[in-house]
Every structure is written in structure tokens, then in C-alpha cells.
Write a protein that binds this DNA or RNA. Structure first.
Lengths: 249, 249
DNA sequence: AGATATATTGCGGATATATGCAATTTTAAA
DNA sequence: TTTAAAATTGCATATATCCGCAATATATCT
């Protein structure tokens, strides 16, 4: 049985029963407890279940659609996210906006990492409620329901009071000349304000939209320190946009 | 049964009945009293319930995410909520704090009612994401994970800028002399600040805790315009606390 | 193909956690 | 104040987890 098959099997069980026990399941599958525990640790880190003493239980709140898990886009986002995690050290202050890429990063944060996180995204807060080592701060403002974030002047003002070590901004449209753009004005303004506050600025780029541009500019490429992409697109960026000083990781 | 499952089960019961008894529940679960007591101690330390002699009771201000079951306690909260709804008119600005009572009000808001809502409660925002006629504003600040609200100076500042027509505050402990009290200092300060901002002040009182008091005072009864209770307690309040100027509805 | 990295797995021992029992202390209600 | 129920404490035991290591399997490269 392949590891991947096992993972699917485990997730199916979790989906059906809301829990699994290490000892009984390892027997059923004919593998050692250790292997199963390692599986559970992995799936926990991906945010697909919650590992507890004796087994694992379904994650509270969100019911995971089986199809979403196989979703390769999310797998790629998780790859991206895993490149970012090692950058963070205990005590770092991190500012994040909304978007699934940032959510993927949050889901992979080790439980023991001590961070201070500022965000205007409700899903991100939701994901962090039971990380005890993280000090959470929410940037209040007008609620933009469709994106599940806050926007507007209040967020702007709140941003002026913080100086994060890291800013993570998810951007779908990246273009060599036009830089980072997005289709909504309010969103662009907030993203820009965030980037201006950060010590190190990190862009999570959906690679399938490299070389595209939208109406509102968030920032130029010069203002960015790191651009994170999926593996296969790194060379592409390096070869074609060699004139800027950012690192591609 | 996993420990975590037990904890979830306990929290569900607390959410439904507002109390549990050690002896009967340990029997029901087939575990020793000791184990259950240890569970309760843990959950108390996490701030999810209040351990008392003989069992545990629900903590004020907590909105627990186990919304799956309809139950008697919630039925009563819904009764309370339905008394509040008729007060609101199109265009009203409403300020709400966290807690299951307020959540019950929010759930009953007619979709066509046009309101502007300010809150520091994540569950309330979550409930309102797809009410198109409501303008939503979130009061940012330090996230208090166990209650799923924001607290602290930032919330305080944000409150200073608004003048709501209505303030709805959930309070579990109401006492004729000591007024409205709650067990957490930050929470008390925020509730107080909210009450000070409102034009009309409305208290949703969990009636089973009438005549009790906690450490931190939120407000005196004179400062309140309406107290909402469950049916059977109205007469009690009217007869026993006749010297104040609030309406009991 | 063959050689070399990388990943996965199971095992043993050290450590940590969960649980029930018994003895003692505390609590609250008559 | 008295008394029975409830809570706490220390302890023993069973179970679960973690860690390093070696064996095996799988992937990658020349």
C-alpha cells in the first residue's frame, strides 16, 4: 500500500467517524504504530486533521471536501508554503493578508513556533485560534464579505502602528514591468500599505498568472524582497526578469 | 474514547445545558470521577468553562463552535432573541459583543433588514458574511482565542469613534446591587466601554444566573435601558428589583 | 544499468501521558 | 456543628509517544 493511499484511507475514516485510534488502525493496516503516527503528523501539518494523544480527530469547524484534498492547486500552494516556514524565527512579527496561499502558510506553522501575527483575514484567525504560542492581532475595519477580510481607512490606520519583521502578501498577477497588480482597488490599497510597513516583503505568487496584469498596481518588483513560486517556475522568472534584486525561493 | 473527544463532548453538554455534574457524567461516559475532574480542570484552565464544586458551568461570553445541536438552552436563547428583533429599524447602527445570546439574535435577523453592525466577535461576523443588506464592521485588536473576540486598547479606541443606536451586551451575572459583572477583567472593560457608547443599552441576561455576581463590574443597573430575560424570570425581576428604571422584556 | 542519494519503515529503549485507586482533606448543606 | 459527598493528592500501572538507528525501498543521476 502506497503512502498516499494510506493517507487517503485515513482521511476517509476521519471523514466518516470523526476520529481514529492509532493502535487499532495500525493493526488494521498492517503497519507499525510509528508509521501511522508519522502519517498523522504529516496530515496534521497539512491541516487535514488534528492529531491527539491516542489517535486523531476531524478538524473542528471546516468539513473538508474530499475533492479539495486531491486538488493539485492546493498541493502546490502547500509546497510554496513549506518554503516560507523556515524563514520564521521565534519572536518574529508577521503581517499577512487574506488569500489561500497565506492560509496554506498558516496551516503549516509548527505549533511550537512563537510568533506575533497581524492580519485582516478572518479565515486566518479561524485557523489560529488554538495555536497557543501565537499572539494574534486582528486589523479591524469594514468587512469585505466576499473575500472575508477587512478593508478601508480603519485597516489603513491600524497598519500605521505596526512594524512587522515579515509581510506576506498573496498576489495572483505578477508582471515584469507592471509589477504586482490586482483587480480590486480597496484590496490593492491595503496590500500596498502592508508592503510599505514590512521589514522583509514576501510575495506568494500563483505561478499560473505570471506575466499577467490587472487594473490596480500594488507594488513594483523592486519593492519586494522574496517572491515565492512553485518549483517549476523558478527558472522561468530568473531567466526572464533578471534585473531585479529579489530572491526567488 | 479519546481524551479530546471527551473534552468536545463535555463542551457540547456545557453549551447545551450550561452545566454538568461530575457524578452523573462520569457514569454516562464510563470513566472515573477523577478523570472527569481532571478534564474539567484542564478545560477550566483553557478558559472554556468554570469548574465548580460538583461539576462545571458555562463561562460567560464564550461562544463555542459546536453549533450542531438544537437544545433547550439554545431554545431559550432564541426566545430571548426574538424579543429583541422587533426593536430594530432600517438604518439602525448596532454594536454587539460576543456570547451565545448575541449570536442567537444575529441568527434571527431578517435578511431584508438594513443595518450597520459593529462587533468584536468572530462568530458573529461569520454568521453575517452572506447578509447582503448589512454593513459589517469589525473592531480590531488583540485576539482572545478562548472567547473568539478581540480585546484590549485597540478595541477601546475603535469604540470611541462610533455612536450606535443600540448596544447589545450579553451578561451571565446580574445582581440587584452589584449590577452586571463578569469574571474577566479585559472582557469587563470592553463591555463597559461598549455600554458607554450606546444610545439605547440592552442587556441579554442568562436568567439562571440572576442574583449572582463576579469580580469585575461592567455596569450598574441604572445605566441599562432594557433587560431581556427568559419568560419565567420577568416577574421575578419586576417584583424584586423595582427601583431601577430599565424595562424588562 | 549501475551507483548514489533520498525517503520510508520498523524496532528498541527512554520518556511522557492517561487513568484509576486509596488515603486524606475540603466543601457545602442539613 | 455535624456529616456525607466531593475534591485533592500521591502513587502504580498501562499505554502512547518520541528518538535514534539500521534496513529496505524508491528516486535520481551519470
Amino acid at each position: 500500500m502506497l503512502k498516499k493511499e494510506r493517507h487517503d484511507y485515513i482521511l476517509n475514516l476521519i471523514n466518516r467517524d470523526n476520529r481514529i485510534y492509532v493502535t487499532s488502525l495500525s493493526n488494521e493496516l498492517g503497519i507499525s504504530d510509528d508509521t501511522l503516527r508519522r502519517d498523522l503528523t504529516e496530515l496534521d501539518n497539512k491541516g487535514l486533521l488534528t492529531k491527539v494523544h491516542g489517535g486523531a480527530i476531524a478538524k473542528s469547524g471546516i468539513s473538508i471536501q474530499f475533492t479539495d484534498r486531491i486538488n493539485t492547486a492546493m498541493d502546490k500552494k502547500q509546497q510554496m508554503a513549506s518554503k516560507v516556514i523556515p524563514l520564521f524565527k521565534n519572536g518574529d512579527v508577521i503581517l499577512l493578508d487574506g488569500g489561500t496561499s497565506n492560509l496554506a502558510v498558516i496551516r503549516q506553522l509548527p505549533k511550537e513556533l512563537e510568533l506575533s501575527i497581524f492580519t485582516n483575514s478572518f479565515p486566518i484567525i479561524n485557523e489560529l485560534f488554538n495555536h497557543t504560542n501565537i499572539e494574534l492581532n486582528f486589523l479591524g475595519g469594514k468587512v469585505f464579505s466576499s473575500s472575508q477580510v477587512t478593508v478601508g481607512v480603519t485597516v489603513f490606520q491600524a497598519l500605521q502602528t505596526i512594524n512587522p519583521d515579515w509581510v506576506l502578501v498573496g498576489i495572483s498577477d505578477v508582471h515584469p514591468e507592471k509589477g504586482l497588480t490586482c483587480p480590486d482597488r480597496d484590496e490593492a490599497l491595503i496590500k500596498r500599505a502592508m508592503i510599505e510597513r514590512g521589514n522583509k516583503r514576501l510575495i506568494l505568487a500563483d505561478s499560473h498568472k505570471l506575466n499577467t496584469a490587472r487594473t490596480y498596481q500594488v507594488a513594483s518588483l523592486e519593492e519586494i524582497d522574496y517572491i515565492v513560486t512553485e518549483d517549476n517556475k523558478i527558472d522561468y522568472i530568473k531567466n526572464n526578469w533578471p534585473k531585479y534584486s529579489y530572491d526567488v525561493i
